[in-house]
């Protein structure tokens, strides 16, 4: 489904992604971990098409289409969804109207019939239930005055509504209380299908107990330095990142010889 080849990207002239390679197949869940500032959100931003990142090298393909050639809204319509680490507030724009607009754009692009008001409402109710998202929040202005956890839950509610192919969740677990984490994880598990895929960016092994990943990758200094299965996450929990950093810098110095 997603194929990232030797991806390099700069922000404000500084190289942040330094040759990322990643293959994600339909039906898979990949976890990306890594220390603060290693480039996880940057990778998510580049995939979503944020314009302040400049791709200097590499390719990204989504089901045979060149993702890097598409505008951000086209990527979204093609099925890329990013649950933001820091969702923005948009005053005066009602959550539900915004979703209606978004869904209508996406369905037009996918050549699906538009939903009637009734169908839309029905779908809203179902998806709200899935992540136990409070109806009163759906009618408020988009994220305005939402608590940290409410914002995160809203991201997953939107994910459920828009039915993407590839979902990238950037630290959606941080800020959620213990119950919310379980609820949201269950919701995501229900949304998993053989046709879609998830990339979970997280710092905590705990999330991966709820949503069991097929692969775990460690991003460090703009590169994937280690890939494994869910056992890798346990190992990281135990040992931290230092051993990987050392290994990485060791190999780097060997390369220099």
């Amino acid at each position: 489904m997603l194929s990232i080849k030797n991806l390099h990207a700069n922000i404000e002239g500084k190289e942040i992604l330094k040759g990322i390679n990643l293959e994600v197949k339909a039906g898979e869940v990949h976890a990306i971990m890594g220390p603060n500032g290693s480039g996880k959100s940057s990778l998510a931003s580049v995939l979503a098409g944020r314009e302040n990142y400049e791709v200097t090298e590499g390719e990204v393909w989504l089901d045979g289409k060149n993702l890097l050639d598409m505008k951000p809204e086209v990527r979204a319509r093609e099925g890329v969804f990013l649950a933001f680490q820091y969702p923005v507030e948009i005053p005066g724009v009602s959550n539900i109207n915004f979703l209606r607009t978004a869904l209508s754009e996406i369905r037009t692009h996918r050549e699906l019939p538009q939903l009637s008001a009734k169908e839309f409402l029905k779908m809203t109710k179902e998806k709200q239930a899935l992540v136990e998202f409070e109806a009163k929040l759906a009618n408020r202005s988009l994220n305005q005055g939402f608590s940290g956890g409410e914002k995160k839950r809203n991201e997953v509610f939107q994910l459920a509504m828009l039915e993407p192919k590839l979902s990238i969740l950037d630290e959606t677990d941080s800020g959620l209380d213990i119950d919310a984490l379980r609820i949201v994880s269950n919701g995501i598990n229900k949304l998993r299908s053989p046709d879609n895929a998830f990339i979970l960016i997280t710092h905590y092994q705990r999330l991966l107990e709820y949503i069991v990943p097929d692969f775990v990758h460690v991003l460090y200094n703009g590169q994937i330095v280690r890939s494994g299965t869910k056992e890798l996450a346990l190992e990281l929990e135990e040992k931290g990142y230092d051993w990987l950093k050392e290994e990485f810098h060791g190999s780097e110095s060997i390369n220099k010889i």
Partner: peptide, 23 residues
């Protein structure tokens, strides 16, 4: 804000319209 709406499939023009009308 514009990027957030873009990421949900809404083009920039419509994003501005939404934000302005909300405002």
């Amino acid at each position: 804000q514009v990027f957030y709406l873009n990421q949900r499939g809404i083009d920039a023009e419509q994003a501005i319209a939404l934000i302005v009308n909300g405002y």
